[in-house]
């Protein structure tokens, strides 16, 4: 395998957490719920995914439980912001701290402090028969783990859901003009709660992917800002699944590039190289935000009997 192929293969592998967390941000945001707990939910997903896989001896069950846990947090965010109309940003930050704390706590309770942390097997690569034999494209796209295929198919599925189905039409209207949606009988609160729950589940899955792909164990700080970058990616992708998928290649590319440059032994302090993805994000966002279209009611709660117009 040549240099280019292996680089691209690593980029596709690294795209997955960005795709999942940013699509999760997107699906909640398109319904008007602005989740800012990504970083914490990814930590929780990583911790729970690792611990459950270790206990029950299978990655699938770890993924499922992590997803359910994240879904519960997302559901809670949707519920308190619709039922009690609490501030989305404040609740989101509170959930970030709660999830991050819970992640460490669970690990310490179950594993404790050890010199030799236990490991879980990482996800197997599944080669797609036939397609994986195509030069360049085959190894890059079709010799990957099941989660890679899931992330790509999910993006396609979300595109179809949002733009081709009646559910999508209703979902987007709740984030654009909930009063209009409500006046036509769309259930604003229910839509928001379920989108927020789905979003939380995807964020936790993004976290659970990390120990199952890279380290085989949970470590503090392993999420390394990917959750915050997912928020940037959602804006960068204009809150549209197809552009988020494309944008995740940029974010993942920067991540892999930074690693490569470090390994390559350039005579630059590695802190500067590690900074690369964040600096690039900052620069891109400065321009991306100029044209990015965001849902009109992103982060804003809706009150039917409020007599002030928006």
């Amino acid at each position: 395998m040549n240099e280019v192929t292996s680089f691209l293969q690593l980029v596709v592998t690294a795209m997955v957490p960005f795709i999942l967390a940013a699509q999760g941000t997107m699906i909640a945001g398109r319904a008007g719920v602005f989740n800012v707990a990504q970083e914490g939910l990814m930590m929780l997903g990583a911790s729970v995914g690792f611990l459950v896989s270790l206990t029950f001896g299978g990655n699938l069950v770890g993924l499922v439980v992590a997803g359910l846990g994240g879904g519960l947090f997302g559901w809670f965010l949707g519920w308190v912001t619709t039922r009690f109309r609490l501030d989305q940003f404040v609740i989101g930050l509170a959930l970030f701290f709660a999830a991050a704390g819970l992640a460490s706590l669970l690990y310490k309770v179950v594993i404790g402090v050890t010199l030799q942390p236990p490991l879980i097997p990482t996800l197997d690569d599944l080669s797609v028969p036939g397609l994986s034999a195509i030069p360049l494209v085959g190894p890059v796209l079709f010799q990957q783990s099941a989660m890679v295929y899931f992330a790509f198919l999910l993006s396609g599925g979300l595109y179809w859901l949002l733009y081709k189905t009646n559910h999508g039409l209703k979902l987007r209207s709740v984030g654009e003009n909930p009063k209009a949606a409500d006046s036509l009988g769309v259930n604003v609160a229910r839509t928001r709660i379920w989108c927020s729950a789905a979003g939380g589940a995807l964020m936790a899955l993004a976290g659970a992917y990390l120990p199952m792909t890279y380290t085989g164990t949970y470590t503090e700080g392993m999420v390394a800002g990917r959750g915050w970058l997912a928020i940037a990616l959602a804006f960068f992708g204009g809150w549209r699944p197809q552009y988020i998928l494309a944008g995740s290649a940029f974010f993942a590319g920067m991540e892999v590039l930074a690693l490569r440059v470090q390994v390559g032994g350039l005579d630059v302090p590695h802190q500067f190289i590690s900074m690369l993805p964040y600096v690039a994000t900052l620069l891109v966002m400065m321009f991306a935000l100029r044209w990015a279209r965001i849902p009109a009611f992103l982060g804003r709660n809706y009150d039917r009997e409020s007599r002030t117009s928006h």
Partner: peptide
């Protein structure tokens, strides 16, 4: 309604 209830982007 007097203030139209429409989704501008639709």
């Amino acid at each position: 309604h007097q203030n139209f209830l429409q989704v501008d982007t639709y």
